[in-house]
Write a protein that binds this DNA or RNA. Structure first.
Length: 431
RNA sequence: GUGGCCGUAGCUCAUCAGGUAGAGCACUGGAUUGUGACUCCGGAGGUGGCGGGUUCGAGACCCGUCGGCCACCCCA
């Protein structure tokens, strides 16, 4: 019989790692609350059309990376490859756009890509979207919020902020034409991938990893020269605000976006420590998307973080700390049917009065020896033991498993009358 | 989709001119007829990813295939 394995690129996250995920989620959730962002929960599946219209028909994501399928009624649905489209769709549909909205969400996204370090087919993002505010102060707020998040997570020293402005779509169109004209004249000098991009997505050539291509770009037209006045003013103002707030940044004039809906401000937080997939958080302004999806014209800006990458980075840098998987405080051992019954009842009573204690009740029988072995492995500092003697005497044996010098009465073991169990445990876990 | 490296016990890995498998950890039993961690002794666990080829003989060599990792591409 062959075993069934997980889908390639869709990974299990085991109890070793989930505490780090939980910490990340908790820190993010608290931080976003403190900035006035509300959580929104969105479907994993949307009409395929939503992503075609938002991300762009000719992007790689839409052309070859989406998990699309026909529903039973024949319409094409898609597992969301990113969160912004669904969030904007919901904001329009639910009438949230009458006032500025600060929203966030977290969850799995799906892209059919070749897995590698920091990249899988089911991955998890936390997305933040601010809808209805055109002013660049909103862009700054989001970046400041990110910077604070890195500080809270202990990652501030591990990431670098890169910013750029890609201007209005008209400005970009003009620049694209100039860039294509320049690069076409040097077509032969371009690497194979960039030659292909010359037709499909010329701006993407700017962040090519090929050194020869990068060298060729040194003499190419510069995006900044093509920016409209408004975009240029906003970008100046953004730099002023970030500087005033003490947030370090690098202007990367070749920073562009893979998704079509972005304009003006774009930004990324990148790290050197994760190999090739160094972008840990990326976003920008998308003032035309709401209208493109059928809503009334509404400016917007947002970003998304890759949770796998952040957890990796936390582990890599030691910022993850020693968050341990859930461990027991108390392990209950019982041998014999009567003892099991006594133990069950007593442990449930303790759960009522001391709800904060993690108590594992041994199941599956076995000798005192094997059960105590389990107790030790569980990490519990106290074992409660029931056997024939305890049943007869209406008592329980309390055994301290983590004896230490100076622990006073928290060493060895002793017999405690059944009705004093709760008080004994309360004292044992007082600190 | 392309390329490189790699698939031996649950995990981490050995072995060998090609002569039909071994360690540590984990699991389990005992030394201790009601007591863990340390120690000692024992046990279980592998159709060597799968299929084909070369060979008297293949886990080792060759081909194919599937899977893993990393990189390209793409992107969070």
């Amino acid at each position: 019989m062959s075993t069934i394995r997980a889908i390639r690129g869709m990974n299990d996250i085991l109890p070793d790692e989930t505490p780090h995920w939980r910490r990340l989620e908790q820190v993010v959730c608290r931080l976003l609350n403190s900035y006035g962002y509300g959580e929104i929960r969105l479907p994993l599946v949307e009409h395929t059309e939503l992503f075609k219209r938002s991300i762009g028909e000719v992007t790689d994501i839409v052309e070859k990376e989406m998990y699309s399928f026909d529903d039973r009624n024949g319409e094409s649905l898609t597992l969301r490859p990113e969160g912004t489209a669904g969030c904007v769709r919901a904001a329009i549909q639910q009438g949230l756009l009458t006032v500025p909205q600060r929203l966030w969400y977290a969850g799995p996204m799906f892209r059919y890509e070749r897995p590698q370090k920091g990249r899988q087919r089911q991955f998890h993002q936390i997305g933040v979207e601010a809808l209805g505010v055109a002013s660049v102060e909103m862009d700054a707020e989001l970046i400041l919020l990110c910077a604070r998040l890195w500080r809270r997570l202990g990652l501030a020293g591990s990431v670098e902020l890169q910013i750029n402005s890609i201007g209005s779509s008209a400005a970009r169109r003009a620049y694209r034409a100039a860039l294509v004209e320049y690069l076409s004249a040097h077509r032969a000098a371009l690497d194979e991938d960039s030659q292909r991009r010359l037709d499909s997505n010329p701006l993407r050539i700017l962040d090519s990893k090929n050194p020869d291509t990068q060298a060729l770009l040194d003499a190419a037209p510069v995006l900044a020269d093509y920016l409209d006045a408004e975009a240029r003013d906003d970008f100046d103002r953004l730099r002023e605000l970030l500087t005033a707030a003490g947030v370090a940044f690098v202007v990367n004039p070749r920073l562009v976006r893979g998704l079509d809906y972005y304009n003006k401000t774009v930004f990324e937080f990148v790290t050197e420590r994760l190999g090739a997939q160094g972008t840990v958080c990326a976003g920008g302004r998308y003032d035309n998307l709401v209208e493109q999806l059928g809503g009334k014209s509404t400016p917007a800006v947002g970003f998304a973080m890759g949770m796998e990458r952040l957890v990796l980075l936390m582990l890599e840098t030691g910022a993850a700390g020693d968050a341990a998987p859930a461990q027991a405080d108390v392990y209950a051992v019982a041998v014999g049917e009567d003892a099991h019954r006594e133990a069950l009842v007593a442990v449930e009573a303790v759960r009522d009065s001391l709800p904060g204690l993690a108590i594992v009740q041994h199941t599956g029988g076995g000798s005192f020896k094997s059960q105590l072995k389990r107790a030790d492995k569980s990490g519990a500092s106290v074992a409660l033991i029931w056997g024939e003697d305890e049943v007869r005497a209406q008592s329980v044996t309390v055994k301290f498993l983590r004896d230490g010098a100076g622990q006073g009465d928290k060493t060895g073991q002793r017999s405690v009358p059944r009705d004093q169990l709760e008080a004994t445990l309360r004292a044992a876990f007082a600190d």
